[in-house]
Design a protein around this nucleic acid. Structure first.
Ligand SMILES: [Zn+2]
Ligand SMILES: [Zn+2]
Ligand SMILES: [Zn+2]
Ligand SMILES: [Zn+2]
Lengths: 169, 169
DNA sequence: TGTATGTATGTAATATCATAACACGTCAAG
DNA sequence: CTTGACGTGTTATGATATTACATACATACA
C-alpha cells in the first residue's frame, strides 16, 4: 500500500472520469478497508470482502441482485439477504455508499477519511464518481438550520453527462 | 387565490414545520397548479387532480401504493399504473416531487416557480419540508464542473430531526 | 475440554415498489 | 364518420427489499 500521493488517480479519486491506474485504485481502497476494519475491530469476512472487491471493479453502482448473482456463482449463498447484509455492513463501516437514485451501491474511494460525499452519475455510461460535497452539505445544513431542522444524514446526487460522454455528443 | 404574502405559511412554505393555515396552504397550491396547467395546456384530469389533492393533505410523502389505496376507495382504478401514471404526470409538470430516500412522492409547495428544491425529512414524525437548495445546488454544480461533469438533475435530501421532534427529545 | 454466548451465514417465504403490454373509451381534427 | 392521440383500466410480471427461522462458527470462560 503506497501513500495516496503516489497515484494521481487515487490522490484525486473524485476524478473517476479521468484515465487512471484503476487496478491500483482498487487495490489501494481494499488495503485501506482492511487497515480500517483492523483498527475498528469490524470483521471483514470473506463474503463482505468479496462484495467490496466486486464493487471496486469499476466506478459504477451495482444493484444488490447484481452482487448476489456474482456471489452465487462463487459458492456463496444465493438468497437476497446474503447480498443485502454484506452491503449493509460495508455502508455502515463507510466502505461503500448507497446511491439512492439507482437503488444501488458503490465502493467508497477513500474509506476511513471523514468526508461528505456527493455522487455524479453519468446517464450514458453509468459511471458513478464520488465527489467532494463539503460545500453543498454546508449549504444544506445552513438552509435546514433556518427552519430549526437538524441534518443527520444527507443524500446529494447529480445525474448528468460525464466529460467523456459529453465529448461524444 | 391570494398572493403569497397574504399567508405566512405559504410565503415561506419551507417552514412546513411551523404552525400554519394548512387548508389555505393546500388550496393555494392547488389553485396554482390549475393556473399553471391552464397556461401550459397540460390536462389536470380528475384522477390527476385528486392525486394532487391527496398529496397536499399533509406535508408528508406518500408511496404510490398509499395513493392507489385512496384512489381505489373513491372509485378510480385500483391497479398500480393508475397511481404511477398520475404521479409521473405531476412530477413532469412540476406539481410534485419524488423523494428518493423514501420511494415516495410529495406535493410541490410552490409550483410554477423555477426552484432548486431540497427536502428535509424528519425521521420521527415523517414530515417532509421542501427547502431552498439554490446554494447547495450551486456548490454541487461547481464541484461537478471541476471534473467536467455537467449536472442535469440533482437530488438533495436530508434526514434528521425537525424542530418539533427535537423539542421532545 | 466443554459449554455458553454472540455473531455471521444460509434459506424460505413474503413484502414492497415499479413497469410492460394490451383493451377500451373519449374527443377533436380532418 | 373515420382516424389518431391521449387517458384510463386491467392483467401480468419484474425488480427491489425484509422478516423469520435454522445452522455454523468464533470467542470467552467455567
Ligand atoms: Zn479507479
Ligand atoms: Zn459517461
Ligand atoms: Zn401547509
Ligand atoms: Zn418531526
Amino acid at each position: 500500500m503506497s501513500a495516496p500521493q503516489d497515484c494521481p488517480g487515487c490522490a484525486a479519486p473524485d476524478l473517476a472520469f479521468a484515465a487512471h491506474d484503476h487496478a491500483h485504485c482498487a487495490q489501494d481502497a481494499l488495503a485501506r478497508a482492511e487497515a480500517l476494519t483492523a483498527t475498528t475491530g469490524a470483521r471483514l469476512t470473506p463474503v463482505r470482502r468479496r462484495v467490496l472487491e466486486i464493487l471496486l471493479e469499476e466506478h459504477k453502482a451495482l444493484g444488490a441482485y447484481d452482487v448476489l448473482a456474482r456471489l452465487a456463482t462463487e459458492g456463496f449463498g444465493n438468497q437476497p439477504p446474503v447480498a443485502y447484509r454484506a452491503l449493509e455492513f460495508l455502508v455502515e463501516q463507510g466502505l461503500a455508499h448507497r446511491i439512492q437514485r439507482l437503488n444501488a451501491f458503490t465502493a467508497c474511494v477513500h474509506p476511513g477519511e471523514d468526508h461528505a460525499p456527493a455522487f455524479l452519475i453519468c446517464r450514458t455510461c453509468h459511471t458513478v464518481a464520488e465527489a467532494e460535497a463539503t460545500a453543498a452539505r454546508a449549504a444544506l445544513d445552513t438552509e435546514a438550520a433556518r427552519t430549526g431542522f437538524q441534518v443527520e444524514r444527507s443524500t446529494i446526487e447529480a445525474l448528468g453527462l460525464c466529460p467523456n460522454c459529453r465529448g461524444q455528443a
